[in-house]
Computed example of a mutant assay.
Amino acid sequence: MKTLKVKELQSQSEIREAFPIIRQLRTHLDEDTYLELVIDAQKNDSYKMFALYDNKKMVAVTGFKPMITLYYGRFVWVCDLVTDHQLRSKGYGEKLLTFVHKWAREKKYESVALSSGLQRTDAHHFYEDRMDYDKVSYVFKTSIND
């Protein structure tokens, strides 16, 4: 029997356990930088990290934060959502993103938003077709380092 469980990752060892999966999405990060960023974001930016386990094996990870802006109002921003590449198309991403929706609803947030890299067309189909997300904007970025 399949046993799926969502668990918040809070300890350093739990956060480290998620690194091999997160690394599949955030390829620019080494483990120490990743750990430092997650701990800093949890402490200073209300960042939440959850993992989906199937029979005690971590299969997908999400990181999100509750936010308030004039554009979206009270919402949850999904910063990271990734299923282990060997286990994709098994419904794990849908299960974990549905968990984020439930979390947001229970905490009285009005919506859930995210951005996805332009090259990630499979992810775009997932968000639009399976999860009923609307494409509402482009995200722009510039570096401010000299």
Rank of each mutant, 00 (worst) to 15 (best):
T3N: 10
T3S: 09
K5N: 13
V6S: 03
K7Q: 14
K7F: 03
E8T: 12
L9R: 08
L9E: 06
Q10V: 13
S11K: 11
Q12E: 15
S13E: 15
I15T: 05
I15C: 06
E17V: 01
A18F: 09
A18D: 04
F19L: 04
I21F: 05
I22L: 07
I22T: 15
Q24N: 05
D32S: 14
D32L: 10
Y34W: 01
L35H: 02
L35W: 03
L35M: 09
L35T: 02
E36Y: 11
L37E: 11
V38L: 04
I39M: 12
I39W: 01
D40E: 12
Q42K: 15
K43C: 03
N44Y: 13
N44D: 10
N44G: 08
N44E: 09
D45S: 13
D45T: 03
D45K: 15
S46E: 12
S46K: 14
S46R: 15
Y47K: 10
K48M: 07
K48E: 11
M49C: 14
F50K: 06
A51M: 04
L52E: 06
L52N: 07
L52I: 12
L52A: 09
Y53H: 05
D54W: 10
D54S: 13
K56Y: 11
M58L: 14
V59D: 06
V59M: 09
A60W: 01
V61N: 06
T62D: 00
T62L: 07
G63Q: 02
F64A: 04
K65I: 01
M67F: 12
M67I: 12
L70F: 14
Y72P: 02
G73W: 02
G73S: 03
R74P: 08
F75W: 01
V76R: 03
V76E: 01
V76D: 06
W77F: 14
W77D: 14
W77G: 00
V78K: 05
L81G: 00
L81K: 00
V82L: 02
V82I: 15
H85L: 11
Q86T: 11
L87T: 05
R88C: 05
R88W: 03
S89F: 09
S89C: 06
K90H: 15
G93Q: 04
K95S: 13
L97I: 13
T98G: 08
T98N: 12
F99N: 04
F99T: 01
H101E: 14
A104C: 06
K107E: 13
K108P: 01
Y109S: 02
Y109M: 15
E110Y: 07
E110K: 13
E110I: 00
S111L: 08
V112I: 10
V112M: 04
A113K: 11
L114P: 00
S115N: 14
S116R: 05
G117R: 12
L118H: 10
L118T: 12
Q119D: 12
Q119L: 11
Q119I: 10
Q119C: 02
T121F: 09
A123E: 05
A123F: 07
H124Y: 04
H124E: 08
H125V: 10
F126Y: 10
E128W: 00
D129V: 08
M131F: 04
D132T: 09
D132M: 10
Y133I: 02
K135C: 14
V136P: 02
